[in-house]
Write a protein that binds this DNA or RNA. Structure first.
Length: 877
RNA sequence: GGGCCUGUAGCUCAGCUGGUCAGAGCGCCGCGCUUACACCGCGGAGGUCGCCGGUUCGAAACCGGCCGGGCCCACCA
């Protein structure tokens, strides 16, 4: 593609392929230009460019199993504005688009859509066809789901998401995202899986990934471990139960909200300085119902003013229990299983027949039923004092779950993230400080999160659909796995599925037999893959040449809610693998609030579908609304703002049509000789300078506001002032004044189109096509210098002064309730000193625009603006 | 309990490092079919800048406190 370099210093050599239309319209503009841009491959990425010529964007991949909503349109527009600006600044923009089809939402959707369930132990079935296809909103019970292999499941996922991706792409195209659509990626693709596995193997080799068997937060619904970043504290109704333990010197009362854990009690714990319990430290008490003897211990984490001041420590009721268990070397007595129910087998630490009978009462029950049974038992034995006191407590939930998390002991994979290593934490905090957040205060959220980490990053999940750990274990003669010496594939074999692939040196028939091998059963959490988007899109594994050209990337755009997850985890992976930041800048978009000032969400059902919104108001209009909101600031969903955007787009079409109607627009700055014209260009030069600085600082709102304000004054005042002069005289003679006006109009229009192009790509491209070559989106960003040269040091205030004079003349007509076309026979115009010179300079244009046919005298004025006195109007009979 | 953001005309928001900052658009009222635009143009009315103190010659802007809105983290006995 050959590019023109149309700037005011290079006269426009050729006319566009299309003429200026008689009637302008925005109808169908999106479809038309999307097709043209695709045909021209306008946004195609040129990978021959070097790193310093490239601007690379680490686009957030939307979840394909959800639906896009206006919030997506909002934030993706912000990114596109940046992309378009950088492209016009001459950078080759690397702007891929991804689809997130790895994770629970997709897993659940595939299950329901096809009536299947992933079971990695099953072999791959060639040509598998699911039992049914399509969902009518019904949830298919697990028992009715056909179990299939992981590979078959992934294939169905890809089949299902193809349609979602097609629709998502159609929306993004309609919105005008300048993505190179040949560079899309999926987070469950073979390449993504390979990248995730390779990065993991590297982490493992360097000692940054490890596995450990430890108590951790567990979701009983999904039956998987969950990470700190996925927690959500929610209010949860509970009740304090005052329960008596039996000591030598009488009962010891504790208060608990979880009496069902009584069988898991390993100690009572109070603060070492607590006067009330000094005499009990070192003694033992027995638990009610079960008669288990437990010690009374002291630990500083016990808080005297909480509950009874002495706590029942169970394995495990909460994270404090875990701390006590670890620091006081307490035994492990778990009673809650991975399904959230009380373990069926009566534990051996309950020795008495009575105690064992009591346990039978709760065995196999849910925590809820078990609690009722335990409370009933305590009432019977008289060990419940008083009635339970209802309370609201906060409980940790998995963000996608609806039951409180339990703590269970399990073997899990972790990646170091500074949560247990001060040195690494400091290094990651330093990375956060090195990253340019927009807006800046978002960095605080990063710091708060990293500073508050209480453990390493748990990356394993006990699910079936996702990226499997590329790990096998040797089985000893007893069939027990050797976790300490995992069998690993070489990087060139990735991706592997250990459930169907066989480690080197083994044969398939050795799977799961003593002396053979077994696969690691877990998959990686979805963030373990999406933390590698720069590596996935940049070709880290397979295309080092490309990777060197785009990494470290320039921009990570994303929402504020996933700073602790996506942003942080990406920084962690990049820091560990590459020893540097994955990108230099992070642009954080805010929320969309509905009119109630609440975050708009899918569940509220009041969300307009994005495509309908774009079709009703036009993409430029919706983009204008999005671009009117600053980064990091929540914005109202406001139709009114879209209407203003639409009006602006139409105004651009109309004003352009008008400005181009005076004949060939010569862009020769030498022709601009009139002082008013020069003043206008001086003002435009200021706008260009400030708007450029604003966009460089990721402040698209300011840039838009500057351009927009200038443009409306340009239309309402400047255009009105010069239109008479811009018409050729009656004899067809083109005076210097006419030439000056036409050249100034052409230069201004050319500049304004480019200023608006990032926000209003369709309307600006439309106008550009009327008279310029190529695309405005590959035209260079405007430069203030040639405008300044053309303005020849003119005072931009002249436009304002002339505008004030014109307004005064309009006011006379407005108050007289006559048409603006009405002539003024004579008038005295009072202007303050500050404006006088400007008005005088543009006096001829003011007279023409105000239709002053007779005398126009200037007088002094103390106030602001200009005021017309003693006007004689020529009102037609 | 800790932290971040936020409170300016009816609405949505500008007001950057204290001195034409009391603004814009929408809405509202009135007028006008003017050879770019009626998906328009012109004119007008509207606010003691959440509240109370303080710093200053001067504060919407800086400091302290309070009140209101949003969000994050901690609190699970």
């Amino acid at each position: 593609m050959t590019e023109q370099n149309p700037s005011p210093t290079t006269p426009a050599p050729t006319r566009g392929t299309r003429a200026v239309p008689d009637k302008v319209s925005l109808d169908g503009i999106e479809t038309r230009w999307d097709a043209a841009w695709t045909e021209q491959n306008l946004y195609g990425f040129d990978r021959t460019k070097s790193r310093d010529e490239i601007y690379s964007i680490d686009t957030p991949p939307p979840t394909v199993s959800g639906s896009l909503h206006v919030g997506h349109v909002f934030s993706y527009t912000h990114t596109d504005v940046v992309a378009r600006f950088q492209r016009m600044r001459g950078r080759e923009v690397f702007y891929p688009m991804g689809w997130d089809d790895n994770g629970l939402p997709t897993e659940r959707r595939v299950q329901n859509y096809y009536g299947v369930r992933c079971d990695p132990s099953l072999p791959y079935v060639d040509g598998f066809e699911p039992p049914h296809e399509g969902t009518d909103g019904k949830v298919i019970k697990a028992a009715d789901q056909v179990p299939i292999s992981r590979r078959n499941f992934v294939e169905l996922c890809e089949r299902l998401t193809v349609e979602d991706e097609r629709q998502f792409e159609a929306l993004w195209r309609h919105l005008g995202l300048s993505v190179d659509w040949s560079t899309t990626y999926q987070t469950i693709s073979a390449e993504s899986r390979a990248v995730a596995q390779q990065a993991f193997l590297r982490n493992l080799a360097r000692g940054e990934a490890y596995q450990a068997e430890a108590p951790g937060l567990w979701d009983v619904t999904f039956q998987t471990a969950v990470a700190q970043a996925e927690l959500e504290a929610r209010d949860y109704p509970g009740a304090f139960h005052r329960v008596a333990f039996h000591g030598a010197g009488g009962p010891v009362h504790i208060e608990t909200t979880r009496p069902e854990l009584l069988a898991a009690c390993v100690a009572l714990i109070a603060h070492p300085d607590d006067e009330r319990y000094q005499h009990l430290f070192g003694t033992t008490v027995t638990t009610p119902l079960y008669g288990v003897e437990v010690p009374v211990l002291s630990h500083p984490a016990a808080e005297p003013d909480k509950g009874a001041g002495i706590a029942m420590c169970c394995t495990f009721g909460d994270l404090t229990d875990v701390q006590w268990w670890r620091e006081l070397q307490l035994p492990t007595r778990s009673v809650i299983g991975r399904d959230g129910r009380v373990l069926r087998d009566t534990p051996d630490w309950i020795a008495s027949d009575q105690g064992r009978a009591r346990y039978e009462e709760i065995a196999g029950k849910t925590t809820f039923s078990a609690r009722e049974a335990v409370v009933a038992g305590l009432r019977e034995t008289g060990d419940l004092e008083g009635e339970p006191q209802a309370t609201q407590r906060k409980a940790n939930f998995y963000e996608k779950g609806d039951k409180p998390l339990e703590i269970v002991t399990s073997r899990q994979w972790y990646i170091t993230n500074g949560g247990r290593d001060a040195q690494l934490r400091d290094a990651l905090l330093a990375r956060g400080a090195e990253l340019d957040f927009h807006p800046e205060f978002m960095q605080v959220r990063y710091e708060n999160w990293v500073g508050g980490l209480n453990g390493d990053w748990l990356i394993s999940r006990q699910r079936f659909f996702g990226v499997p750990f590329p790990v096998w274990y040797r089985l000893d003669e007893a069939g027990e796995p050797d976790h300490d010496h995992p069998l690993l594939p070489s990087e060139d074999l990735l991706p592997v599925d250990p459930a169907s692939d066989v480690p080197a040196g083994y044969t398939a028939d050795q799977r799961d037999v003593p002396g053979g091998f077994t696969a690691d059963p877990d998959i990686m959490d979805t963030w373990a893959t999406s933390s590698l988007t720069p590596q996935i899109v940049g070709g880290w594994r397979t295309d080092p040449d490309l990777f060197a050209r785009v990494f470290p990337m320039d921009l990570r755009p994303q929402g504020q809610d996933i700073i602790r997850t996506w942003l942080f985890s990406t920084v962690v992976r990049s820091h560990l693998e590459h020893g540097e930041l994955p990108w230099s800048d992070a642009a954080i978009s805010g929320w969309i609030l509905d009119p109630d000032r609440k975050k708009m969400s899918k569940s509220k059902g009041n969300v307009v579908t994005p495509m309908a919104l774009l079709e009703e108001h036009g993409s430029d209009a919706v983009r204008y609304w999005a671009a009117s909101a600053r980064l990091g600031t929540d914005a109202a969903f406001e139709i009114g703002q879209m209407k203003i955007g639409r009006r602006l787009a139409i105004k651009i079409l109309n004003a352009s049509k008008f400005a181009l109607s005076f004949g060939t627009a010569e862009l020769d700055p030498a022709l601009v000789t009139n002082p008013l014209d020069r003043a206008m260009l001086a003002g435009l030069a200021d706008v260009v300078e400030k708007a450029t600085a604003a966009l460089e600082g990721y402040d698209h709102t300011r840039a838009l506001e500057l351009s927009e304000t200038f443009f409306w004054t340009f239309c309402d005042d400047y255009l009105e002032l010069v239109k008479d002069r811009a018409y050729a005289g009656g004899d067809g003679e083109v005076s210097a004044g006419t030439q000056s006006a036409r050249a100034a109009l052409g230069i201004a229009l050319d500049t304004l189109l480019r200023l608006f192009a990032p926000v209003l790509p369709f309307a600006t491209e439309e106008v550009w096509s009327w008279w310029r070559e190529g695309s405005v989106h590959r035209a260079p960003w405007p430069d203030a210098a040639p405008l300044r040269a053309a303005a020849a040091d003119a005072d931009p205030g002249v436009v304002g002064a002339a505008g004030a004079a014109l307004a005064a003349l309009r006011k006379v007509k407005s108050e007289a309730k006559v048409s603006m076309r009405t002539e003024i026979a004579s008038v005295r115009l009072a202007v303050p000193d500050a404006l006088r010179a400007g008005v005088e300079i543009a006096l001829d244009d003011v007279r023409a625009a105000g239709r002053v046919t007779g005398s126009l005298d200037l007088a002094d004025h103390d106030g602001e603006g200009a005021v017309a006195h003693d006007a004689e109007l020529v009102v037609p009979a």
